[in-house]
Design a protein around this nucleic acid. Structure first.
Lengths: 241, 241
DNA sequence: ATCTGGGTGTTATCTGCATAACAGACAGCG
DNA sequence: CGCTGTCTGTTATGCAGATAACACCCAGAT
């Protein structure tokens, strides 16, 4: 039924072709599968490290399907302070709040070179109406976001910075992790400042915290400046202290 | 197909009647209209003050359409600490996370006598597929929730307790407020402990904060123990200090 | 009327974290 | 090559808010 159309790199697609293409592409990406090929007849936008996909204030109305790269989503206050709500990578979607009528305060910035396909909310709605199973996927996306935000609130309300830091590291390991033995390398360049924005603490605290964890052998740096963590040990440590 | 077993106290409705009824009911309530009558052939559940609609851990799969009353949604940690994410009242919906596959950690508790109509996520999906405009409403519901949670994160990350308190009071005035002159009465009994859980601070701080605001004439109590705030003055105060 | 228990107001002390201010490491660039 | 900018590590000082411990009030129960 979804008539998975040929999906080719080059062949420019007609309208009649495009819709089902979008449909299965959404399906794939919403599910987090790595079938980027399916979106290849839509034009991806390129973003370099540090470039913003959408910003607070702009009335962006598109979701972005990340084909490759890593982006942070967060916000910045009038006074220039920043928080990071979440990190998303290839195969995931950002900008879901473009579905909202209310004014939003979020933005997305590439942490490394990223390609992402913008799809307007209207197009997404249309697609969903033709491909019902996608509805569940879309809603699951919102649920995951919401869950994540609520967890962050709980964490801020009750845990001290050290616990929030270890939690953040564990989350990152889960999301961006490449296992190596019983250690996991976090495959992205995160500055301490960015970690601090995820933890909602001052950079100095993060520096101290990482130093402590390093001395205990729970964390180390690769030559490339990536973090390598030992999730098991980290969890233990966090539980004990 | 939705095989909704008849549910009625009085008029049992046929299947053919029930569906459109649910559809327009959803429509109305999602939009926040006060047309409770439309849901009257579904059975509402009664909850007394303090009773929980759904709890963490239980695998509740229903949304609740609040017909009357006020509920808090929040969570509680292993160690018994509580946060409140949001307050919802008649005409609104809670339990949207029952749409999630992932394990949730939220719960809803009545702040006063409340009646709410539970509708399973499956039923909601079916209804939406027959009544497309509802889709937008449902998604807006998720967006509002998410927006709210993100705002709470930002607030916790950057504002001190006093600012969070005034913000909470202003939000409450907006949601539960009954205007009286240029003051607004918050039409619910909120203990300082509950305010503290919304602000994510210790009760003592809230007590001190309210005392301060009261001395400045920005807040007062009604004989019934409700709070009355002066939103304009409160906003000024919050901006200055 | 007394007792109880939940809510409130207040203070004194302790502590985690922000603040501020550097010094070193390293990378790219003139 | 030394210069710049960005990132990291480390300290000393100050403060907001947690902790702890009360006394007070009022409503409902006995």
């Amino acid at each position: 039924m979804p008539g998975n159309p040929n999906t080719l790199q080059f062949a420019p697609s007609s309208l009649r072709e495009e819709e089902p293409a979008l449909s299965s592409a959404l399906c794939c990406i919403f599910r987090g599968r790595f079938c980027r090929a399916l979106l290849q007849n839509r034009n991806a936008q390129q973003f370099e490290k540090g470039e913003t996909l959408y910003d607070v204030g702009r009335n962006e109305d598109s979701f972005f399907f990340i084909r490759s790269g890593v982006v942070k989503i967060g916000t910045v206050t009038e006074t220039g302070e920043e928080v990071i709500f979440d990190i998303r990578k290839a195969g995931e979607v950002v900008g879901e709040l473009s579905a909202s009528n209310s004014p939003r305060m979020d933005r997305a910035v590439a942490l490394e070179a990223t390609e992402a396909v913008p799809v307007s909310y209207e197009e997404i709605l249309e697609t969903i109406q033709k491909n019902q199973p996608l509805l569940r996927e879309l809603i699951q996306l919102f649920c995951d976001s919401l869950l994540n935000a609520q967890e962050q609130v709980t964490s801020l309300a009750f845990r001290d910075t050290m616990h929030r830091l270890t939690k953040t590291l564990l989350d990152l390991a889960g999301q961006l992790g490449r296992p190596t033995g019983n250690r996991v390398e976090i495959t992205a360049h995160l500055t301490q400042e960015e970690l601090a924005q995820m933890v909602a603490a001052r950079r100095e605290r993060v520096s101290l915290g990482l130093g402590l964890l390093r001395r205990h052998g729970l964390v180390e740096y690769t030559p490339h400046g990536h973090l390598v963590v030992d999730p098991g040990a980290l969890r233990d440590y966090s539980a004990k202290n």
